[in-house]
Each structure stands twice: as C-alpha cells, then as structure tokens.
Design a protein around this nucleic acid. Structure first.
Lengths: 204, 204
DNA sequence: GTCTATACAAGGATAGAC
DNA sequence: GTCTATCCTTGTATAGAC
C-alpha cells in the first residue's frame, strides 16, 4: 500500500465518521503517523483529496448504473441497491454534497456529466420497463416524474437518514428507502411488474 | 432596527448568498460597519446566530403547517407552497441542514420536535384527505409512504434545486417540486381529488 | 448595556531544507 | 519523497473604553 493509498483510505474512514469539514489535516496526519506536508505532497489541497474520493465513488457507480434494453424491474431495483451500498461506503461525500458542488470546481464539473448520464440511464431504463410491460405510463410526463423522483431519492436518502433515522442500522435505512422506491414504481406497475416488485421487497 | 436585528438581517442575506460556512464574522462585521466583538456581544458564537435564524424559520412554518380535519387537497398543496417560500427565504439553513443537525446541539434538539410535529401534521392531513374522499389508500402503508415521501421532498427539494436546477428561477424551481408532489398525490387521488390537483397545478 | 481592541488556538496552504 | 517552519484566515475569549 503506497502512502497515497494509505492517506486516501484513512481519510475516507475519518471523513465518514466525523464529516469532511471536521477532520483536520493535522489530525489525519497524526493518525497516520506522518506529517501534514507529506499529505499535501500527494494532495496539494484538501479538495484534491476529496476529489480523489469522489472519483473513486464515480467509478464504482458507473460500473453499475447502465441503460439496458432488456431491463427487468427486479434488476433495476437491484441496480439501485448497489448504488445505495456505494453511497454508504462514501457517505461523507453525499452528506457534504451541496457544499462540494458549490465550492469545488472539479467535483462540480464532473457532477454535471455524472448527473446527466445517470438521469438518461434511469430514463432509458424506465422506458425499457414500460416497453416490456412492467410499468404502464399515461404519457411522457409520467416518465419525467418517475425519473426526477428517483433522482431526488437516490441523491438525498442518505442525508435524510442521517438527520431522521440515525438510530436505525444502515441495512434498515437501505431497506426503508428501497421500499420507498418500490412503492413509487408500484403506482405505475402492471400486474406483472407489481409481482416482481413484491418479490424484491420481500427479499430485502 | 436594533443592532441585533441588523446583524440577523444582513447575516441571513449573506448566508443565503454564499453559504453559512463561507461567510466570516469579520466579513459580516465589515459590511455592517461594526466590529466583530459587537456581533459576539449579541451572539456569543456563530451557532447562536444560526440558531436565531433557525428559530425564525421555525416560527414562520409553525404558523402555516397545521393539521386540519376539513383539509382539501388544494389547501394542503397551498400549505406546502407557503413552506417552500419560507425555505427560499432561509435557504442557507436548508442547504447546510445535515451539518447543522450533526454539529449544533440546539438546532438538533429543536429539529427532533419540529420534524415529529410536521410528520404528524402531514399524516393527519393525508388521513383527513382520505376521509373526505380526495385520496384513496389501500392500507396504512400507503399513508406511511406518502408521509415519508413528502417529508423527503420538502426537506431536500431546495438542495437538489441548488445542485441541479440552479439555472432555473426560484419560481420555476418551486413549480417543479410542487408539481412533483402533485403527481405523487395524483397516484392516490380519487376523481374528485384529481380534479382539484389539476386545478392547483394549472394555477401554479 | 454597548462597543472596541487585541490576543489566541486551530484550520489550510506554501516554500524550502534534507 | 518526507518533513519543518511559516503565513493567513477562522471562530472565540477577554479586558476595557464609554
């Protein structure tokens, strides 16, 4: 494990525990038994350190979030479940999401691309689910509604969990928000779709 | 206007523009043409200043969010619209929501009460809407789903707008998220309810 | 009671020695 | 590649002028 990797790993651990803004470089250096200047040698600014973590989360998610013509509801929900688990691994980033976007140029620029990619993937998948008769929509506005609702939940579930459900285990939190998504899709599901959704929820 | 009021007003203005964490007390004092110590005389810590703003937002919302046996869907949506406007006025608080809850004891404690009150109000109102045949639910889990979905949207719409829809005007943002809520309720609305929801959306 | 001046500790950033 | 020394800005605390 290189020094840079050690720094990244410990930073993620401490950021997740205390919040990015509340972990000082001196504290991080002390825990790693190195000096502050050694951290800034690999990561000139704290933002660079955060950027590296953000890039790692992006990589994880981009491997999982794909548009698939043959998508099933269960596969779609399982895809979101994996995203949720990635979010837990990098929860510090999601909890500081708004500030990072507003203050960190690099993250902000990359996010525009990521958000756009993810939204198209979600939209394509929903359309695929409609085509294969898992979902039934009245018109295009239903697809837009589902897409933007899903985006909102995916981005902010962990923030709401932090302020309202911190007493629950992480697993229970994930179950809660995946159930919410399942219920959201249910309202637009065909009998075939409803059955698969029920199966997914039962297996949570 | 007393000094304390001037400080509060200008702090809210600057916090909303730049974010609470990125407005220094020296900067605030300079703009007000007073000295830092003068701010800390009225607000010993920065958190005390934020607490005062948080209390003001709470007061505004508590006057508007009520449980009403005679609730109509239109009245319910208009209630949420007012809450959205209050959130815009105090957007800095909502954008720093997670950190405030995690770091600020006073806000955190008060929030527990507020969140609990608001959730019961929403739940009561939804039940009232069911009773007066605006909405139709299958069982109690539908009510729970609606309540928690509404809570999530109400808490985080402004955060998502900040990261994804900052190019839109505030009015357009509010329209977007109120429409989302309208659509959410629509899935559970009776013919009577749907008609009123459509009327509300048309009037946005 | 109101306000100013000043000092202090902790944060991130930077230049340069080894 | 590693570490020391230093700088600047933060929030906060205190002593004292009026």
């Amino acid at each position: 494990m290189t020094t840079a990797e050690k720094i990244l790993a410990k930073a993620l651990e401490m950021f997740n525990e205390k919040g990015i803004e509340y972990v000082g470089l001196r504290e991080l250096a002390a825990v790693l038994n190195i000096r502050v200047g050694n951290i800034t040698y690999y990561f000139p600014t704290k933002d660079d350190l955060v950027n590296a973590l953000s890039l790692a989360l992006n990589k994880l998610n981009s491997e999982v979030v794909v548009a698939n013509e043959e998508m099933t509801v269960a596969a779609f929900l399982n895809m979101l479940k994996q995203v949720f688990h990635h979010h837990v691994q990098y929860r510090c980033l999601l909890l500081s999401f708004v500030h990072l976007i507003e203050q960190n140029k690099v993250i902000s620029e990359r996010y525009k691309q990521t958000a756009s990619d993810r939204n198209s993937a979600i939209e394509s998948n929903i359309k695929a689910l409609v085509k294969s008769a898992y979902l039934k929509v009245k018109d295009e506005t239903d697809v837009e509604y589902l897409t933007s609702s899903l985006s909102l939940i995916i981005r902010f579930w962990i923030s709401e969990a932090a302020v309202s459900h911190s007493r629950l285990s992480v697993e229970a939190q994930i179950r809660h928000y995946l159930s919410m998504i399942a219920k959201l899709l249910s309202a637009y599901a065909t009998a075939k779709g409803k059955k698969e959704i029920e199966g997914f929820v039962a297996g949570l």
